[in-house]
Amino acid sequence: MIDIILLTLLVVVAIAIIRMKDLFAVVMLLGIYGLLSASFFVAMDAVDVAFTEAAVGAGISTLLMLVVIAMTGRKEKTNRHKPLPALCIVLITGGLLIYGTFDMPHFGAADAPIHQHVAPRYINDSMAEVGVPNIVTSVLASYRAFDTFGEVVVIFTAGIGVLTLLSVARRKEDAEKISSINDSMHEQHLVIRIVAKMLIPFIFLFALYVQFHGDFGPGGGFQAGVIFAAAIILYAMLFGLNTARKVINQTFIQLIAAVGVLLYGSVGIVSLMNDGNFFNYNVLASDPIAGQHLGILLIEWGVGCTVASVMMIIFFSFAGRLELHQHNERVKNQESS
């Protein structure tokens, strides 16, 4: 029942996104869309996915879009030029998918092929083979560790891509001028700053908990990385980019992003050296289960490092660009007045 309500809400939000012209509202709705789908994932028993979607769909991507809107303006032009061809394409694609549903296994059916063929081994044997209660973690970090490695590389790629596009080489005096304006802006929110200062250590603690607890409950390197980055981002938003930049050296986080990928990969290389296949954790220790535990621990750290640092890289790149925009505009205004 709850899933039908959630799906209906999702449809309402989707329609609202289509119709809204105010990009700020659209982005907020997108955040709601992410949060609703996260709730839907909980109803579908996918707690790990829900956790991630809430952090990413409702958190990080909304934040990034808001920063971008601050630079580009929040109004969408009213003329929609080609609704008809778009409608045709959408109707054909959707029609094809609906046509496909007629032979699909029914929703929730336990005898569907996906529940019969590969999955039972994960459910029945993962405890004996990997020794981790959270099946999602054992599939993600061991059975399909290579996919997850690919995922880390995707994130690393995005980080480098954003850096190439947005990093600005600025002169020193400019940077100082920008920062002096910036710091004065943040002195007003005294209460929030104090509360945040108290909160941030707990967020770090929570990130660590999520990092280590991924074996037993929902969580793991990716979620922990996002939470860790969120704490830093919060700090940066309240205390100014430059203060944050002083705390966290930019070259250093790039290094950590690379180290994360390398750490993950070297687990595989060490297993090669020990005559196992790539990512075969069994050979990492004398006892296969201990090896699996060690392997999973290490790669989760690799994921956590890369994700946290890339999220920070992305945020700092966007925010740095925004700062530059605001600075330029201020200069322009001063000149004109």
Binding site: A46, V56, Y122, I123, L140, R144, D147
Partner: peptide, 15 residues
């Protein structure tokens, strides 16, 4: 239990 494999795939896809 619900099937864990699609969960794993989607975790990757979200990233």
């Amino acid at each position: 239990y619900s099937n864990p494999l699609p969960h794993v795939l989607i975790l990757t896809a979200i990233v």
